[in-house]
């Protein structure tokens, strides 16, 4: 096993807003991050510094202008997300990178149970097993059984977020990205999430998270990495 799961180096990212006369917004310059197996790293920094931008780069949702995002797959092979083809990125998302976004993107008419089981089904796990694991996790997150068969479109914010969390933790991804995972949860469910993060670390996953809840952050993060606005970093 390599001594890191994620090694991002020399990352630069800016946006050119063509509809606003081509104004250029530099966000990250020469950013880097290394995360070991079993380690949870929290990103912190002022609003607008680029924490979410960095998370999106690590998920392949934004494209890096410069730099490398090396990711070690479960089989030990290494991919560079920064230069990977769309098909490779889709493959990494299927097998390697789990992601809990801040808000669930609802797919019309798909029941919560299916939403959660999807990452397992995509990996070829048998349907019955995938649904059973999805159900167990939803129960653990205290989502009432009667909601499992309903599409999450009408769920409350906290219920949607628990569906989202279950989806991110249902498969044993080597790398898990968490953007404000506990923002809309009550105390009991926050404890469940803290336990899930602990279990992921224990099985050797690397985690990167943005936690605005400092109590949660203190309990799960092994290290805090500051993302500074460019002027201050320079």
């Amino acid at each position: 096993m390599s001594d890191w799961v994620l090694k991002a180096e020399g990352l630069s990212k800016g946006f050119t807003l063509h509809l606003q006369g081509g104004v250029r917004i530099p966000v990250l310059r020469d950013a880097g991050l290394v995360v070991a197996p079993g380690e949870c790293v929290a990103l912190s920094g002022p609003s607008g510094a680029g924490k979410s931008t960095l998370m999106r780069l690590l998920q392949g949702n934004y494209g890096a202008d410069e730099g490398a995002i090396l990711i070690c797959r479960a089989d030990g092979s290494v991919a560079d997300l920064a230069t990977a083809s769309p098909r490779e990125v889709n493959g990494l998302r299927r097998d390697t990178i789990g992601h809990v976004s801040q808000f669930l993107r609802v797919i019309p008419r798909v029941p919560a149970l299916e939403v959660v089981a999807a990452p397992l089904l995509a990996r070829g796990v048998a349907r019955e097993l995938a649904l059973a694991r999805a159900q167990a996790l939803l129960r653990r997150l205290n989502l009432p059984d009667r909601l499992h068969a309903l599409p999450p479109a009408t769920f409350s914010g906290g219920e949607q977020q628990r569906v989202n969390l279950a989806r991110g933790f249902v498969a044993d991804f080597p790398l898990v990205l968490l953007d404000e995972p506990t923002a809309s949860l009550d105390a009991a469910n926050r404890e469940v999430v803290i336990a899930l993060i602990g279990e992921a670390k224990a099985r050797g996953a690397a985690l990167v998270g943005i936690f605005h809840d400092l109590d949660v952050r203190g309990r799960v993060a092994d290290r805090v990495v500051e993302v500074l606005p460019l002027r201050e970093a320079a």
Binding site: R56, N61, Y62, G63, V89, N90
Partner: peptide
Amino acid sequence: GLTDRVLDD
């Protein structure tokens, strides 16, 4: 490119 990247970035 990747659908969500083309749409979000």
